[in-house]
């Protein structure tokens, strides 16, 4: 009896089953996608490592849902690694003190404040919202084309959903291509999903409950984050609800937590 090697045997079986099951015994190649940690263990666990590099990630949610904290925590990881980041602020809402409290090296951060209108955000006429949005998109485009930025946050957090959704799909396609080419993480902070199929990851944030100290001091918040979409993750059969995690954020003034 002639001895046959295991590979020859596998080839023979695959050849026999070729019509029904192509490459039945050969495991499918799995591409390893580079991920970048957000600095929040619960979120990194949910995302199996972090936000994808060279792709668009969406962090959506209403006000006070923890999306800005999550984005700042992510940038803090990048600047701590000596990389350069940018924050494109459509509504001029970025708070440098919060960024510093989250550990962002401000000298490594380029902040683009779209032109001020002089009118508080909630009193602006809803008929002319596109000037600042246009500036934010053009600025993001320029930064992506320039290359060298590890992460760019496009902050549309105060932009109305109906306006953010009117950003053409072609713009998001272009951003996706540019982010892929420059290996830049483009993080879009918005109230609801607007990048649609161009986003590799979509997270939905929500506020759960405050952390207080004797009902006199607000010490922090528990936020919930749900993974609405993750392009490169394997499909889990039978999963009905999107996976979610709860994560805490302390107040910037909380010396007990800071110590």
């Amino acid at each position: 009896m002639s001895s046959r090697s295991s590979s020859a045997l596998r080839l023979e079986i695959e050849h026999a089953l070729e019509r029904s099951f192509p490459a039945a015994l050969t495991p499918a190649h799995r591409t390893i996608h580079e991920t970048v940690a957000t600095g929040i263990a619960e979120v990194d666990e949910l995302l199996e490592g972090g936000l994808p590099a060279g792709a668009i990630s969406e962090i959506n949610g209403p006000e006070s849902s923890g999306r800005t904290t999550l984005a700042l925590s992510f940038l803090a990881q990048r600047t701590a690694a000596g990389q350069v980041c940018a924050w494109v602020d459509a509504d001029d809402a970025f708070d440098p003190e919060s960024a510093a409290a989250n550990g962002i090296n401000l000298r490594q951060l380029l902040w683009v404040r779209c032109r001020k209108s002089g009118i508080p955000i909630r009193q602006r006429p809803s008929t002319k919202p596109f000037a600042q949005l246009d500036q934010a998109l053009r600025a993001t485009d320029l930064l992506l084309q320039a290359g060298g930025f590890a992460a760019i946050v496009l902050d549309l957090g105060d932009t109305a959903v109906e306006h953010a959704r009117r950003i053409p799909l072609a713009t998001w396609f272009r951003f996706r291509q540019a982010a892929d080419r420059a290996r830049t993480c483009l993080v879009v902070v918005a109230q609801d999903g607007c990048a649609q199929s161009s986003a590799a990851v979509a997270l939905e944030c929500a506020a759960l409950r405050p952390i207080t100290a004797g009902d006199t001091v607000l010490r922090g918040f528990h936020f919930e984050v749900r993974r609405e979409r993750q392009r490169f993750s394997p499909i889990v059969i039978g999963q009905k609800k999107p996976p979610a995690r709860v994560w805490p954020a302390a107040g910037a003034w909380d010396m007990e937590q800071r110590a």
Partner: peptide
């Protein structure tokens, strides 16, 4: 800029209204 330890607990961020 040299790489530094980046593991810090997240802090609640503010979104300012200007003005």
């Amino acid at each position: 800029s040299p790489a530094i330890e980046g593991n810090r607990q997240p802090r609640m961020a503010l979104r300012r209204l200007r003005p």
